[in-house]
């Protein structure tokens, strides 16, 4: 493994080895193929697919997005082609790639999560699953599985029981006690956690006096949320031992370093892909240059250095 390589599932029989710690986040990179003409996707650490549901979904009415200060709101509503077509049409493409594709799965019930996880087990081209217990835009029954410790743990257990694939559980930031949820998810067999999904928000079109997004409530992403998620990663890193993937407002090498220093083993670049499709690769190069400039032998040496237990200071300057 090179000095940029990381394993997000060291306890898993398959492992989840990335050539570098920079992934692209679910919902911001389609099924990976859409950006192929612009981006050398094989140089990415990993690709998290658009969220997949058991049946195809049309998603929410429009308007689905709105720009906010240094961020955006979205309520797409998990529009996707459904499990069957992901297996028959997308996975064979992924199977030819070097870059690992982690399939983001989203269920409305524990049974659906089980069906998704079991169906993707053993499918060539699927390197792991990101268990999306936190999509804020489809509230079947009014609650998210990520909302409380018990339901987050139950989904994790159920998927763990039906698949040997590496499991990355994506948590919601819209909770009071993120640490106890992360601990519970780790206990129930998550190989790593991704932290976090979007923050709930809304906007109002003052010309019409109506909510600016048809779904009313929407998920806030982009640089605006980064400090909130960095804080959560920092808190959770002190409490769990499985790898954390920091997700929220990563736009440059310095942002990625913040997450790594807060205790994340890897990051996902999300909304920034919409603005600069090549930004994840620019961060890969930037991290490499940072290791050079500061004399680190491996990127893991940066992980968690901001934590109280690992107080240390980089030798000089910034990236």
């Amino acid at each position: 493994m090179s000095r940029m390589g990381v394993d997000l599932a060291p306890r898993n029989m398959h492992g989840l080895s990335l050539i570098n710690p920079v992934m692209v986040a679910s919902g911001t990179f389609g099924y990976g193929v859409e950006y192929q003409s612009l981006v050398d996707i094989q140089r990415l650490g990993g690709i998290c697919s658009k969220g997949v549901t058991v049946r195809p979904r049309d998603g929410n009415p429009t308007p689905r997005i709105a720009e906010t200060p240094s961020g955006m709101l979205n309520a797409i509503g998990l529009q996707n082609v459904g499990l069957r077509r992901v297996i028959s049409e997308k996975a064979p493409i992924w199977d030819r790639w070097r870059v690992p594709v982690i399939v983001n799965i989203s269920g409305e019930s524990i049974q659906e999560f089980e069906e998704l996880a079991a169906s993707l087990e053993g499918v060539p081209g699927v390197a792991g699953l990101e268990v999306n217990i936190s999509c804020p835009n489809i509230r079947a029954g009014g609650r998210l599985f990520a909302d409380c410790t018990e339901s987050a743990a139950a989904v994790t257990r159920a998927t763990r029981d039906v698949t040997s694939l590496p499991l990355m559980v994506k948590l919601s930031p819209n909770v009071g006690d993120i640490v106890s949820i992360a601990v519970a998810v780790e206990e129930q067999g998550a190989d790593c956690i991704s932290l976090a999904n979007t923050l709930l928000g809304m906007t109002i079109d003052v010309r019409t006096g109506r909510p600016g997004i048809a779904n009313v409530s929407a998920g806030l992403s982009g640089p605006a949320i980064r400090p909130i998620i960095v804080r959560m990663v920092y808190q959770v890193a002190a409490a769990i031992s499985v790898p954390i993937v920091g997700v929220g407002g990563v736009t440059c090498t310095e942002d990625a370093l913040q997450y790594l220093m807060a205790g994340a083993t890897a990051v996902q670049v999300g909304t920034a892909n919409f603005v600069n499709p090549r930004v994840a690769l620019e961060i890969v190069d930037g991290l490499d240059a940072y290791l050079d400039a500061h004399g680190y032998a491996h990127v893991s040496e940066v992980v968690g250095i901001a934590l109280p237990s690992r107080r240390a200071v980089p030798t000089s300057g910034v990236c």
Partner: peptide
Amino acid sequence: EQDMGCAMGVCLACVVKTRRGL
């Protein structure tokens, strides 16, 4: 016209209804 995000067909913000679906 529709509010647009990525313009690369990824974010699925700018959909319209057609006879072939969204």
